Simulated scan of single mutants.
Amino acid sequence: MALTEKQEAFCQAYIELGDKSKAYRHAYDADSMNSNSVAVAGNEAFKNPNVSLRIEELQNEIRERNKVKIDDVLSVLADMIRFDISELYDENDNLKSIHDIPKSHRQMISSLKTDHLYGGKEIIGETKEVKTLNKLDVIEKFMKHLGAYEKDNGQKQTNITVSPLMPDEIKKINDSLESTY
């Protein structure tokens, strides 16, 4: 399987970014292309058998290196989708100790911040801020993997056949347009 330098760059970018259009923009000179053209070109690049095989090879290398199976990733994503923010708090609406929060829920936390409130030099209270991952992003990744968008995108395709017009047909159309104005 001999790939060009740009095809290899596309494969590497696709593995990193998970998006055909972004990978195409990364690997090829696409600055003057609109987003639709890039999407079509990215799909075409992806459909190349050598490129698809290389991407599969890279994905297998990553799985083997990390000993992660797709089922493992999907299981984590499924747990994230089922995330309920109430699991972070006790019955008095106080944030639980990090050790009391279930692992699947801790994985949804992107950051924790504690600010102390001072009365002079003495701490009189604290404020805790919890930021969670965007659940819609997690759902989108899950849906992409399941191929839900591919099915939807396939249903949206419209094929239009345009046949060339003869000069006399063009004249008739022009005449009818002129008569309406």
Rank of each mutant, 00 (worst) to 15 (best):
M1W: 10
A2Q: 12
T4H: 00
A9C: 06
F10I: 05
A13C: 05
Y14N: 06
Y14C: 03
L17G: 02
K20A: 12
S21C: 02
R25L: 08
R25K: 14
A27E: 00
A27Q: 00
D29R: 06
D31E: 13
S32E: 05
S32V: 04
N34V: 05
S37D: 03
A41P: 00
K47F: 01
L58M: 08
Q59F: 02
R63Q: 09
R65Q: 13
K67C: 03
K69F: 04
I70H: 04
V73Q: 02
L77C: 01
I81R: 05
I85R: 11
I85D: 12
S86G: 08
L88I: 06
Y89K: 10
Y89N: 03
D90A: 07
N94W: 12
N94I: 13
S97K: 14
I101C: 11
R106V: 12
Q107S: 13
S111T: 10
K113P: 02
L117M: 15
G120N: 09
K121S: 15
E122I: 15
G125E: 11
G125M: 11
K128Y: 05
V130M: 02
L133K: 15
K135P: 08
K135A: 14
V138L: 10
I139W: 06
E140D: 15
M143P: 07
H145D: 12
A148C: 12
E150G: 11
N153K: 15
G154M: 13
G154P: 10
Q155A: 15
K156V: 06
T158W: 01
T161N: 08
V162F: 08
K171D: 07
K171L: 10
K172G: 02
D175Y: 01
S176P: 00
S176V: 04
S176C: 00
E178M: 07
E178C: 01
E178D: 09
T180Y: 10
T180E: 11
